[in-house]
Every structure is written in C-alpha cells, then in structure tokens.
Amino acid sequence: MALSRVDPEREQALRDLDPLTVTKLWDNPCWLSFRLNFIAFRFNDPVYRWIETRYGLVRPEFVALYAVGLRDGVAAKNIVASSGLPKNTLSRSIQKLLHRRLLRRETDHDDLRSFVLYLTAPGRAIFEETMPLMIQQQTAMLSVLSETEQRQLCELMDKLVIASPTWPTDLEKEGTAS
C-alpha cells in the first residue's frame, strides 16, 4: 500500500521532483524498497564519488576498508554477509587493498585455516579522514527530522533489520514466481 500524498505542504516539494521519481516513490505498491534505495543512493553516490576521486578507491574497495575500520580482525566472509556484495567482487577488492597496503591479512587464531583483516596505518588514515564527511552527510539527511523522529526511525529500521532473516531470499523457491 503506497502512502497517500494528502499533506498540502508536501505538494510543492513533490512538484519539484522528477515525475517518474514521484511515481516510483509515492504511486507505487512497492514504495518501501524504492524509497530505501532512493535515500541510500542520495547518501552513497556523493560519498563514494568523493572517496574515489580523493583516494582512488571504488565502492567495493571502500566498503571492505570501512568494514575493517569498524571492526578490525574481521573475515572476508563477514564483509560479504554484511554488505551484500558478491564474494568474487569483494575478494578482488580485498586483494587490491592488500596490494596497496591499506589492509593486512593474518591467520585467524580461532581457525588456523582462515584469515582475518586489519587496517594498516594508511588504511586507518583513510577511514578516519572519511568518517567526518560521512557523518556530515548523514546529519544533513536527518536534519529534517526531530530528535524524537530520528530515534523512532532508528527503532523502526532496527525492527526491519532484525526481521530480515525471515524474509524470502529466493522468490522462485517461495512459489511467488509465475
């Protein structure tokens, strides 16, 4: 069920948007997916373009670097699981980061057949330099919401993320394909 556009204050803002964008985000039975993707794109596109221009890192490379920056000692399989990137794309990205000496790989002490990743000093510097810009972008996006609304949005997003393992991952197998 798409949300109704009855709020008169929104009407002018909607008129300023591209007509197809309005259709996809409001006149669409799958509004949630399109709105989440639209908002994510508005965050990701300027951030990743800046990172690629400044550091020469394409999106999958920075996704891997950022993940290790958030949690040193993580395995590539965990980055795949948390990012949605294909395993082969992530593997190539990690190899490039290792080659550029932005990451280092060590044997996992808990599983000697596996490797875990750590940021090097230059990798940590990139992570630390990009964080304020990303926080600034997020702050700008959230500025239209009150603190209460921001907390509520966070709680609602938490519910969706926590429920996500119960969602179908293969629509063909779920019997929804025609």
Rank of each mutant, 00 (worst) to 15 (best):
residue 130 T to I: 15
residue 119 L to V: 12
residue 128 E to G: 07
residue 114 S to H: 07
residue 88 N to R: 10
residue 131 M to W: 14
residue 94 I to R: 00
residue 94 I to C: 05
residue 120 T to L: 10
residue 82 S to Q: 11
residue 71 R to S: 12
residue 73 G to H: 05
residue 60 P to N: 03
residue 131 M to C: 07
residue 78 N to F: 11
residue 136 Q to M: 06
residue 132 P to R: 09
residue 137 Q to Y: 06
residue 97 L to S: 04
residue 114 S to F: 06
residue 129 E to P: 06
residue 120 T to N: 10
residue 72 D to R: 12
residue 95 Q to Y: 05
residue 119 L to H: 06
residue 112 L to R: 13
residue 69 G to H: 05
residue 119 L to Y: 02
residue 94 I to S: 02
residue 64 A to D: 05
residue 98 L to Y: 02
residue 68 V to P: 09
residue 83 S to C: 09
residue 59 R to S: 03
residue 129 E to W: 09
residue 122 P to C: 11
residue 120 T to E: 10
residue 95 Q to N: 11
residue 106 E to S: 11
residue 89 T to N: 04
residue 112 L to K: 12
residue 97 L to P: 01
residue 108 D to L: 03
residue 62 F to Y: 15
residue 65 L to E: 01
residue 135 I to M: 14
residue 69 G to W: 06
residue 66 Y to S: 13
residue 103 L to R: 03
residue 90 L to G: 01
residue 75 A to Y: 03
residue 88 N to S: 14
residue 85 L to I: 11
residue 67 A to C: 05
residue 100 R to N: 13
residue 59 R to E: 01
residue 108 D to A: 08
residue 103 L to F: 01
residue 116 V to A: 03
residue 77 K to T: 14
residue 82 S to T: 13
residue 63 V to Y: 01
residue 125 A to N: 14
residue 105 R to A: 15
residue 77 K to S: 15
residue 105 R to W: 00
residue 119 L to C: 15
residue 60 P to T: 00
residue 71 R to E: 10
residue 88 N to W: 01
residue 85 L to T: 00
residue 79 I to E: 03
residue 133 L to V: 08
residue 71 R to N: 10
residue 124 R to E: 15
residue 115 F to H: 13
residue 90 L to N: 01
residue 86 P to F: 00
residue 113 R to I: 03
residue 114 S to C: 07
residue 121 A to M: 10
residue 110 D to C: 09
residue 95 Q to H: 10
residue 112 L to Q: 13
residue 64 A to G: 04
residue 66 Y to I: 00
residue 120 T to Y: 06
residue 137 Q to D: 05
residue 131 M to R: 15
residue 132 P to A: 07
residue 67 A to H: 12
residue 84 G to P: 09
residue 111 D to G: 10
residue 132 P to D: 12
residue 81 A to L: 12
residue 67 A to V: 01
residue 132 P to E: 11
residue 109 H to M: 13
residue 69 G to D: 07
residue 62 F to A: 02
residue 99 H to W: 05
residue 69 G to R: 07
residue 68 V to Y: 02
residue 126 I to R: 08
residue 96 K to A: 09
residue 80 V to E: 14
residue 105 R to I: 11
residue 76 A to D: 03
residue 73 G to W: 06
residue 118 Y to F: 15
residue 120 T to W: 08
residue 85 L to M: 10
residue 112 L to D: 12
residue 107 T to M: 08
residue 134 M to F: 08
residue 104 R to F: 03
residue 115 F to V: 07
residue 116 V to C: 12
residue 86 P to A: 07
residue 75 A to G: 10
residue 87 K to M: 11
residue 69 G to I: 04
residue 91 S to A: 11
residue 75 A to C: 07
residue 130 T to D: 08
residue 135 I to C: 08
residue 117 L to R: 02
residue 106 E to I: 02
residue 90 L to V: 00
residue 119 L to W: 02
residue 70 L to E: 12
residue 85 L to D: 00
residue 136 Q to N: 12
residue 78 N to Q: 13
residue 134 M to S: 13
residue 61 E to P: 00
residue 60 P to S: 02
residue 102 L to R: 04
residue 67 A to W: 04
residue 125 A to K: 15
residue 89 T to I: 06
residue 127 F to Y: 15
residue 126 I to S: 05
residue 61 E to F: 00
residue 112 L to G: 07
residue 100 R to A: 14
residue 75 A to Q: 14
residue 103 L to E: 09
residue 114 S to Y: 05
residue 122 P to I: 10
residue 59 R to W: 02
residue 64 A to L: 04
residue 80 V to G: 04
residue 67 A to Q: 08
residue 126 I to N: 09
